[in-house]
């Protein structure tokens, strides 16, 4: 294992985060605060509670997940797309590094950023509503699993994309709608039964449900199913990344 290469990629990517602090950290924190103002204070004040939890408190896990999902994809996809775009990918391809080491470096950095951001947003949420985390270990497990899984997914998008438009297409047209419709701001039980069934086809439901369970022990699906679905998505992403490096898809001519 070329640990120095992993370290080099990881630190290089983290350096990019600190260099673009405003874009990487400050911007998502401001967006989340606005969500709290709009959904928590303005609209939330008209909703008594959801399954015994005040609405403002209820949306905290969903908001954290919303940021972690989108930022994981954004960080990882940009991280690998940019070297492709400017041509510096040549160095990565000609270095004595294995695909696994490249993935650990890029995905590790992207996931780290997302986790830091998730925790900052959690802290920000604490300024607006009282926080209760009944299962902190599970909360961290879901946070890490989600960050890693969606960073892998972002990595795949970054390799697949051959234009900035494509780079934005999946996050904007698929991931964001799925996240909004995945129970970030509501409980699936609040939906009519038909829509409830449709919603269960959305993989994000399982992530948010599991994450929310770790806070309040309330969930749309069982915790076991949440863990299983998250791990399934992780394995699918890992398989795709393995195939990409094996074939050189969109990396090598």
């Amino acid at each position: 294992m070329n640990f120095r290469a992993i370290q080099a990629i990881y630190l290089f990517e983290m350096a990019r985060t600190w260099r673009t602090l405003l874009q990487s950290i400050v911007s998502p924190v401001i967006s989340t605060s606005l969500y709290f103002v709009v959904f928590g204070a303005a609209i939330g004040s008209r909703i008594a509670s959801v399954e015994g939890v005040s609405y403002g408190t209820f949306i905290v896990p969903g908001l954290v997940m919303l940021s972690v999902l989108t930022q994981s994809i954004s960080n990882a996809s940009f991280g690998i797309y940019f070297p492709k775009f400017i041509g510096t990918i040549y160095e990565l391809l000609s270095a004595p590094v294995s695909p696994l080491e490249v993935v650990i470096g890029y995905v590790g950095a992207a996931a780290t950023k997302s986790i830091i951001l998730g925790l900052i947003i959690l802290g920000t949420a604490g300024l607006f509503v009282p926080l209760h985390i009944l299962h902190p270990v599970w909360m961290l497990t879901f946070l890490v699993l989600t960050a890693v899984t969606f960073s892998l997914f972002g990595f795949i998008i970054g390799i697949w994309a051959d234009s900035f438009e494509k780079l934005q297409a999946i996050p904007l047209l698929v991931v964001t709608p799925l996240t909004f419709l995945g129970g970030s701001f509501y409980s699936v039980s609040m939906l009519p039964s038909g829509w409830r069934t449709v919603t269960l086809l959305n993989p994000v439901v399982y992530l948010i449900s599991g994450f929310r369970w770790s806070f309040y022990e309330i969930s749309d699906v069982s915790i076991e199913l949440s863990v299983f679905m998250t791990l399934t998505f992780l394995v699918v992403c890992m398989g795709l990344v393995w195939w990409i490096f094996k074939t050189g898809y969109k990396l090598k001519k």
Binding site: A8, T88, Y90, E91, S94, V97
Partner: peptide, 27 residues
């Protein structure tokens, strides 16, 4: 390898990018 095209990390410093290359090769 020194490729034909000028592929560089524009926002990086010379020192950082050269040290990155050394690390990437496991040194």
């Amino acid at each position: 390898l020194v490729p034909q095209e000028l592929h560089t990390d524009s926002f990086e410093t010379v020192w950082a990018t050269v040290n990155f290359s050394r690390g990437l090769f496991g040194k």
